[in-house]
Design a binder for these strands. Structure first.
Lengths: 193, 193
DNA sequence: CGATTTTTTGAATCATATCAACGTACGTGG
DNA sequence: CCACGTACGTTGATATGATTCAAAAAATCG
């Protein structure tokens, strides 16, 4: 899908991290597949092995899992971010979670074989692979430390200021579920501040 | 420090992930520095940039940070694991946390320049860099999801069964701080089960 | 507009934190 | 080797804050 306008966002993003030459870029475009989801469509379900990493052009995806029969939202992915179950993808193990479209979504699918092919053939893509996972890891680590070190109230305020689009686009009870509190309590927190 | 017995553990670990040839392995041994810490020594302090990744041969290290004047333990690192502030290391930004030896510790220091030199020169080390951060990321992601989806009690039991050596070696109030509850409450949880 | 979903409110209940006191283990100096 | 002091863990009583359940109000969708 070389030259497709659907690649604009991801190309701009990639070029902030590495500088592939023309051949290398073309090789990348060949492994990409465009896909659309309607609100409530599932991108991944529990038990399946996640064989892709998806880049969101538009929309919001929710990651959630069941623990003792209870559903917990573990992440939101929005425009310009990657959606995957990395644990399942990296370890080739059955996923323990779901990826669900909360809005209509446009995304790019990078398959595992495609990605591994690039890693083997091109030093620049292997490096990109390392740098991007390092970045994602940093974001994740920051999130984890906040969970440990701050109160629910602080977490909500941080989340709302870091991801205002998500707060607008998704029902509050999903955000409550993500923060580990009841919708009622979140409502009360919001009223205060 | 080629052929030093202090490299045995890390060599065994690395060879489960990639298979460097002799030249590649020697290049690695040249960037490693051995270091010892006494109990209560600091490996990293807030405000400094973390320019290393350390591999623990023995002992336990605690990562902690201050949030609104309160100290929170954000992680423990024990034998056979890597200790660093990856956020500071990767982004070259001042660290917001401390790394403290909870016991006497023996470790190997990999400097940023050493590591980057290996990445540039050897495809096998660039790949190792990607694979190891992928692994660490998976562990981290699993921890983060547990924080969101499970109760403190479950978290304690999971932690205690995953890291029994740590539970034995460190004071309980650090574990309470890591789990986000009071030492008194942890004591009561332990009595129950 | 009517139907459904989402958010808010209130009251009762439950869980955890806090504070204070006590018990125990450990190591150090006498 | 003992005694004392310090650090750590436990226990109990009370206070705080979050959850739960039920219901009403508000927002959204067809």
């Amino acid at each position: 899908m070389k030259d497709s306008p659907q690649l604009h966002k991801i190309e701009a993003f990639i070029r902030t991290i590495v500088q592939p030459n023309e051949e290398e870029w073309e090789a990348f475009t060949e492994i990409v597949r465009f896909k659309e989801l309607r609100k409530k469509d599932m991108l991944l379900e529990e038990g399946k092995i996640c064989n892709f990493i998806a880049f969101l052009n538009t929309g919001v995806i929710r990651e959630y899992a069941f623990q003792n029969g209870r559903e917990a939202t573990v992440d939101f992915v929005s425009e310009g971010q990657f959606a995957s179950d990395y644990q399942s993808f990296i370890l080739r193990s059955p996923s323990k979670q779901y990826l669900e479209a909360l809005t209509d979504v446009e995304l790019l699918i990078l398959s595992r074989e495609g990605i591994n092919g690039l890693y083997d053939k091109y030093k620049v893509w292997e490096r990109f692979g390392r740098l991007i996972i390092e970045k994602i890891f940093c974001v994740n680590e920051a999130k984890r430390k906040k969970l440990i070190a701050t109160t629910h109230e602080e977490q909500y305020r941080d989340f709302a200021s870091a991801y205002p689009q998500i707060v607008q686009q998704v029902p509050q009870y999903y955000i409550a579920s993500y923060l580990g509190l009841t919708p009622e309590h979140l409502s009360r927190i919001r009223k205060k501040g």
